[in-house]
Write a protein that binds this DNA or RNA. Structure first.
Length: 694
DNA sequence: GAGCACTGC
């Protein structure tokens, strides 16, 4: 049973501090601070933010933008929306919005606020995340939502006119959609002087955020004389409620952070009082290696340790183990990726070991490839990791780097996601909101011009924008409506003429998930065998169709999934996404039609979206090397693909993962003659012809 | 015969 609470089920016990995202309480242990019987109102008044109630309301009244700097446990997320409502900001049909970067945070914060206000969730207090709209058009006054959902709402209501105040929470995380949202909100402010913004941010970022909202590139002074709120942002700082964390550093740089982490764990276990240990490493490989070393410990210092891995790709049942209570006399060691830095909160952690690195995505606009590389974390990240030790009582953090390095060499903040990503989806979103001058858009952090230009090129080649970089009609507007990567959306549009929309929508849904295969530890061989049962000669996309057909024929049975090494939760998600996509397809006038067993239609639809990912096998290659048609990059079929070692002559890939080699994930066979048909501007016949006969 | 930090619509 999952420890995550889903609204509508039995009410969980709430942790006093709501900021971390996940709320869960596994045991019936009573609240340590002794106010378990205090009234809701008394509990609210104990939160640090309560002292600032009047100040916050005054600043929001008098300033267009208020930046609230508040650390974990201040109570800002749950209290500020309530203060605003009490002060009348939700009167006469208006609404207060509060955005979060993650779905789980939206659900848990909304239910907490609903509970504090004594109202049923979905009435006065509601929330909206993808696939779940728990709001009432008439009744809802305070609405929690992901920033991605608010961006989608702008497509129907560009000025977000139903909201009187919009609070953007966790802005310091600088996620892609938060940054796009902030840029757009600044634009909306010029048109709606009565709108109030509250940006919740961590200390370091507050000043640059204020500078962003203070600057205006044009029309300076136009409404400076008006009677509206002041334009320069107010900054208010609210203290947190975390416990003190004592930090220590290594004296000399370590050469092997995995070994250093393991010996730190053993020495904590040897010398320090009870309390769980949370270790931050970079990925699955690191985690496996560290667990191996701990198991091999020959001095038996590992007695009494319960060692658990934690990363997103881990099956859910294994993930849930980290939430089980630590048995008396034992000590839990959770060896985790960055998932424990923001997305999950672990109670009972007293010691944190921080290796100082994480895997980060970097996008190269020249090759159009996103790379995942191990890179040093920022000081902001290091502080966040350390804070994970001080949630229940004073804790300790062991940094596996020197203090000198932390102070002098570590960068203070990470690179915002928008400067590390492919921008195709982002650009089409802005275009659909009528923002034509993408290069001149006022971003909280500007992406590189190269990345923007590359995104415009890709959209042009897909026929989404025209020679004037305007959205084409209907293609461009239709693709903007579909909440997927534009190349996938193009594939769905093309399926209409090819009569295979049902199949292509299934493929799009599967591709939008991490993986539909169940990858339990030590069962790699069984997984490969299971894959063979569904493998299609045409490639991975058609294999997904076989899996989905089997799933439907089994009456969507979980035991069928289990027997076939398929992730049942992932298949349910496939169904959710399918339902949403079919609804959108119908709205766009795409006929829902199956092509039965005509896989040529499906392959042509994939080609229509992904023609730029075409590759040809090297004529004299013995190791399965391919070259991309676009850039002559050397690439290989990933060993997880059903076409691995089959090496058909012409393929199209869905994505590339780069490690020592560039591997193509999710590959399908095509005929080269389809390429100029799908994209005449992109492929000229004469360019391809000599190769067709070789 | 080898690899996938984390989100989100």
């Amino acid at each position: 049973m999952s420890k995550f609470w889903k609204p509508g089920t039995e009410k969980p016990r709430f942790v006093e501090d709501e900021e971390g995202g996940v709320l869960f309480y596994t045991s019936a242990s009573s609240s340590s601070s002794g106010h378990g019987y205090a009234s809701v109102e008394r509990q609210r008044q104990r939160l640090p933010v309560f002292k600032y109630r009047t100040a916050i309301l005054y600043l929001v009244e008098t300033h267009a933008t208020t930046i609230v700097v508040g650390e974990t446990g201040s109570g800002k997320t749950t209290q500020i929306p309530q203060f605003l409502k009490e002060a009348g900001w939700a009167d006469s049909g208006r609404m207060i919005a509060c955005t979060q970067p993650r779905r789980l945070a939206v659900q848990s914060v909304a239910s907490r606020v609903g509970e504090e206000m004594g109202v049923k969730l979905g009435e006065e207090v509601g929330y909206t995340i993808r696939f779940e709209d728990i709001t009432d058009a008439e009744l809802t006054r305070i609405k929690f939502l992901t920033d991605g959902v608010l961006l989608r709402e702008m497509m129907d209501d560009p000025l977000l006119s139903k909201y009187s105040v919009i609070m953007v929470d966790e802005a310091h995380e600088r996620s892609l959609s938060t940054d796009i949202l902030l840029g757009l909100l600044k634009k909306i402010q010029r048109r709606r002087p009565e709108l109030r913004l509250i940006i919740s941010s961590a200390t370091i970022e507050a000043k640059s955020m204020a500078a962003f909202f203070n600057s205006s590139r044009r029309l300076q002074g136009r409404d400076a004389e008006g009677h509206g709120p002041r334009k320069e942002p107010a900054i208010l700082s609210v203290e947190g409620r975390g416990f003190n964390v004592q930090t220590s550093y290594v004296e000399d740089p370590v050469s092997d952070y995995i070994r250093a982490a393991v010996s730190t764990i053993l020495s904590i276990h040897d010398k320090e009082p009870m309390g769980d240990i949370l270790v931050f490493l970079t990925g699955k490989d690191d985690i496996d290696a560290a667990m191996q070393l701990l198991a091999e410990d020959s001095h038996h210092k590992n007695q009494g340790l319960i060692v658990l891995p934690l990363y997103s790709g881990l099956p859910r049942a294994d993930q849930d183990l980290v939430f089980s209570p630590t048995p008396r006399g034992k000590r839990k060691v959770i060896i985790s990726t960055n998932i424990a830095e923001t997305s999950l909160t672990l109670e009972g952690v007293v010691y944190v070991v921080d290796c100082g690195f994480s895997k980060q995505r970097f996008y190269n606009p020249i090759t159009d490839i996103e790379n995942l590389v191990v890179a040093p974390i920022s000081r902001a990240s290091a502080r966040q990791r350390a804070g994970r030790a001080g949630r229940v009582r004073p804790g300790k953090c062991y940094r596996l780097y020197t203090e000198e390095y932390y102070v002098n060499e570590m960068s203070s903040d990470g690179v915002p996601e928008i400067q590390r990503s492919n921008l195709v989806s982002c650009v089409i979103q802005l275009k659909s909101l009528g923002i034509d001058n993408i290069l001149g858009f006022d971003w909280p952090a500007s992406p590189s011009p190269e990345a923007l230009i590359r995104a415009l090129e890709v959209l042009y080649s897909l026929g989404v924008i025209d020679d004037d970089a305007k959205l084409t009609s209907p293609t461009g507007f239709q693709i903007a409506e579909i909440p997927l990567d534009p190349m996938v959306s193009k594939m769905i549009l093309a399926s209409n003429d090819l009569g295979c929309s049902e199949e292509v929508i299934t493929i799009a849904a599967v591709l939008s998930l991490q993986s539909i295969w169940y990858s339990g530890r030590g069962s790699e061989k069984e997984l490969d065998e299971a894959k063979l049962r569904f493998a299609a000669a045409e490639g991975d996309h058609v294999t997904f169709l076989n899996v989905y057909r089997g799933y439907v024929e089994s009456n969507k049975s979980s035991s069928w999934c289990h027997r076939n090494h398929i992730n049942y939760h992932a298949m349910k998600k496939v169904d959710d996404v399918r339902k949403q996509l079919r609804r959108i397809a119908q709205r766009l006038g795409i006929a829902l039609k199956s092509c039965d067993h005509d896989m040529q239609a499906v392959r042509k639809a994939v080609t229509a979206g992904f023609f730029s990912n075409a590759c040809r096998v090297e004529a004299f290659s013995h190791n399965g090397a391919y070259k991309t048609i676009r850039g002559s990059q050397e690439v290989y079929i990933h060993p997880s693909s059903v076409l691995f070692r089959v090496n058909p002559k012409w393929v199209i890939y869905h994505s590339i993962v780069s490690t020592e080699r560039q591997y193509m994930r999710n590959v399908i066979t095509i005929e080269p003659s389809w390429l100029p048909e799908a994209a005449p501007h992109f492929y000229h016949r004469q360019q391809l012809d000599p190769r067709l006969h070789s």
